[in-house]
Amino acid sequence: MMEPVTAPVGKSTAREYGEAIIEIAHLHKSFGENHVLNDFNLTVRRGENVVVLGKSGCGKSVLIKCIVGLLKYEEGSLKVFGKEINQLKQKELDEMRARIGFVFQSSALYDSMTVRENLEFSLRRHGKGKSKQEILQLVEEMLENVGLANAINLMPSELSGGMRKRIGLARSLILKPELMLYDEPTTGLDPITAEEISNLMLAMQQKYNTSSIIISHDMHCARLTANRLAVMIDGINYAEGTFEELSKITDPKVHAFFKNDKL
């Protein structure tokens, strides 16, 4: 295996952000013979946006599913908020998940519920003690944030792809999470909508001061949102650094991502 070319991470970057929220070290995950994650390392700090780049099907989604405990990893350590995910009990995991927002690739809106019910859904478990009025206010606030306040009573099937993404974003933000995980947030959208979504993500990050991991292969989105990028190749963190730093790397595998998207 090729030695990972780790880009020099500016010391200023490390100082600029808060404590580490996610610490991933030597993570292994495989499906049968297929080793998806192979000694993967990554650290995400508070207030930091990290974009994980990689080819389709290389295991980026697996990574963030491991982070929220949807998948169990086999070896290595994965600490979120300082706790090892694999060792958490179901209840602790649920509490942990309340602090994490997850935006799915396909938005994953509940088809059988209205937009409002979709947004309220997470509050069923984690929003105890809130009055109906408060919940409604929260829902309206979130919809306002994503600019879809008038869609409150629509069904997901009545929404366009971009709107679904926004609602998905609003839904994952409703618990005011400290960490956001985006699974290909701009895939399947036209460039204009993709940029809108990217900007929205950035705006939300600033408004609620969240950290995020953004899984993407959309360089435009990555450039807009990333404080730092990690390139995942063959299940390892092949290269890491700011967009600027990485785009200067001549390694062909890393360069392949940037060749069409020079600054």
Partner: peptide
């Protein structure tokens, strides 16, 4: 297929 089941899991239900 549309990850709604995962989404539910993540939302603590």
């Amino acid at each position: 297929v549309t990850e709604q089941i995962d989404a539910m899991e993540v939302s603590g239900t």
